[in-house]
Design a protein around this nucleic acid. Structure first.
Length: 209
DNA sequence: TACACGATGGTCT
DNA sequence: GACCATCGTGTAA
């Protein structure tokens, strides 16, 4: 991992880092070619105290081990037969993480369409969908730091959201008081956001400054 | 556009 | 055997 990326993660709380991640460029050097996309939507999961998190009450198993890694460790997990992409956000052994839920395709769009023959914004507007579009079908990169494998995060060539919307996290079944806490963040108006009604899409600027 | 629901397969108990 | 940080299709309005 680059020093610059290390600094990106080493400052702030996990929800602050999650917001900072909106507009950064997720880069994947796939076997088929380069693909990338700007992060449009992400969720923070605050570790052992967070009843919606995989590491709630310090739960630690082989599959969620990556959450306990250094900041920027890739956490790939499967759910309902799909894969999702997470990144550890805090110091080693502090199991807080960020779920990447949407990207706006930038490079390699044709490759993504070949991987996932869906029209329009359905290409990458969900955590399982974007993994499908990138063509990541296994957990080979799990436990590795961003930048030390084919996946990287470019924090130099970024876009800036005009406004960030907060909401409850998607898909968490009832888990007490943390169920509805506003730890989902997305770029207001960007169409590559899950479950976004058409009327809330800003098709002129996609919500960027 | 909103909601309901079935398929799905890895992971844990 | 149950759970689940999902997705796609179906229905109705």
């Amino acid at each position: 991992m680059s020093d610059k990326l290390r600094r990106f993660f080493n400052e702030g709380t996990t929800d602050e880092i999650t917001k900072r991640m909106l507009g950064t460029l997720l880069v994947y050097h796939s076997p088929k070619g380069l693909m990338s996309g700007y992060i449009t939507e992400a969720e923070a999961y605050l570790g052992q105290k967070d009843s919606a998190a995989h590491a709630y009450q310090g739960k630690r198993t082989p599959s969620n081990e990556a959450l306990y890694g250094v900041p920027g460790t890739i956490y790939i997990y499967s759910i309902h037969g799909r894969l999702c992409l997470d990144v550890a956000a805090q110091a080693k052994d502090v199991p807080e993480g960020i779920l990447i839920r949407g990207i706006e395709p930038y490079q390699g769009i044709d490759l993504m369409k070949a991987n996932r023959p869906k029209s329009g914004f359905e290409l990458t507007n969900g955590p399982g969908k974007l993994m499908d579009a990138l063509g990541i079908y296994d957990k080979e990169m799990n436990l590795i730091e961003l930048g030390d494998t084919a996946l990287d995060l470019d924090v130099d060539n970024v876009k800036f959201p005009k406004k960030i919307v907060e909401s409850g996290r998607i898909g968490v079944s009832d888990r007490g008081t943390w169920t509805d806490k506003p730890y989902r963040f997305y770029v207001k108006g960007n169409p590559y956001v899950s479950k976004l009604p058409k009327r809330e899409m800003d098709l002129k600027t996609y919500g960027w400054k």
